[in-house]
Design a protein around this nucleic acid. Structure first.
Lengths: 210, 210
DNA sequence: GTCTATAAGTCGATAGAC
DNA sequence: GTCTATCGACTTATAGAC
């Protein structure tokens, strides 16, 4: 993490805001300059081009988010507690960065080359180690602590359950949550427990399996 | 559903492709015209402006998707079968329109005024009836067929679990699914069962609840 | 209805003064 | 390093011929 010139840092913060709000093509260099309180020429002085500035924003945003998520998994707990605390902590991260997932998804929709290259680098540098997570789950299955299933399916289910409220919030608010949705923070708190309970014990009474 | 002039319909199909690929701002009127095999002037002749064409595309795409989803819920089945068949059918719809969710989400990221207004209209016209779904779940809870929980939390969990594979596929492929992900279709088939099993019975053996 | 040609405007990028 | 001024490319939109 190189030390940035004050103006450089200011530009990056401003660019992050504008790109997250408007997307890669919707964002305007003029607006980024205005919010940073400087002029357009300086953007190019420090970051050469719009695309390069955009790539830097993606890299910063994604890198921070990923390392936050991976930290959750480094605690030494039972599988049950790992899953419980992952859901809690991840939703808490999302609550603090509610716009990030949609921003990343927008980039994917636009081809996602930049996100992909950043992610590839993180995997190669072992900042992301999918194998470790998969193995942890597999061992729990082997020990009979979790019922037999494809660990990948479990992970995708947990991630989707955690993310979807934040991704779909604007749509949910005018459909499913139209009535009686007053306390957003409380709903999010309840969401942590709800996801865990559903995934841990299911929704049908009794332990029967077909 | 008004009957469209052949050229009008051609433009709409072409516009749908380009907007889904490139997004609202990334899309070019020239490219839409090229793919439709006509010239730019005709786009304005039929649709007046780019924004208006875009709004029409959103309306068409979302409307179709929503009505497909709502149809699933109109079957007369037990709660268990409703949930099972919803997951199966919805994932099947997503498999056939894998790019639509990301397109809609991109629009949300850009403010989502158009999506919101379309959705509001659908709710008012009773094409979407959240209450019905919520009541169905609530009654199942009252009858003891489902454990006590907030129906909204259940629905959001199911939707997120179904959607996330398709939304995050490009990212999953370079991380979680990097190794040994050969048969996409089979994985999707397995996903239907996996989601249902997790949500129905949970991942921990036995019926204990804490 | 469909075309060509062009107007009108926007935006990223740079030159050059300080 | 930071600014003002401007260029040049690109894009939407339209005027006008057929």
């Amino acid at each position: 993490m190189d030390k940035l010139h004050a103006t450089e840092e200011l530009i990056l913060q401003s660019a992050m805001q504008v790109f997250i709000e408007k997307g890669r093509h919707g964002a305007r260099m003029q607006e980024i300059a205005d919010r940073a309180g400087i002029n357009k020429a300086l953007l190019h002085y420090y970051y050469r081009s719009k695309d390069n500035l955009y790539a830097t924003v993606i890299e910063k945003s994604l890198g921070k988010n990923i390392s936050d998520v991976m930290k959750i998994l480094d605690k030494n707990l039972s599988v049950e507690e790992i899953i419980r605390s992952f859901i809690r902590d991840y939703i808490e991260i999302l609550r603090n960065n509610p716009k990030l997932p949609l921003f990343i998804l927008r980039e994917i929709g636009e081809g996602g080359e930049i996100v992909s290259s950043v992610l590839n680098r993180l995997v190669q540098r072992k900042d992301i180690v999918p194998r470790k997570v998969l193995d942890t789950i597999q061992r729990a299955i082997d020990r009979g602590e979790i019922v037999p299933l494809d660990p990948r399916q479990l992970i995708i289910t947990i991630l989707g359950a955690c993310l979807f409220f934040f991704i779909g919030e604007p749509l949910l608010k005018i459909t499913l949550l139209k009535e009686g949705f007053t306390d957003r923070d409380r709903f999010i708190e309840e969401r942590k427990e709800a996801i865990f309970n559903i995934i841990a014990y299911g929704i049908f009474p009794g332990g029967d399996r077909t």
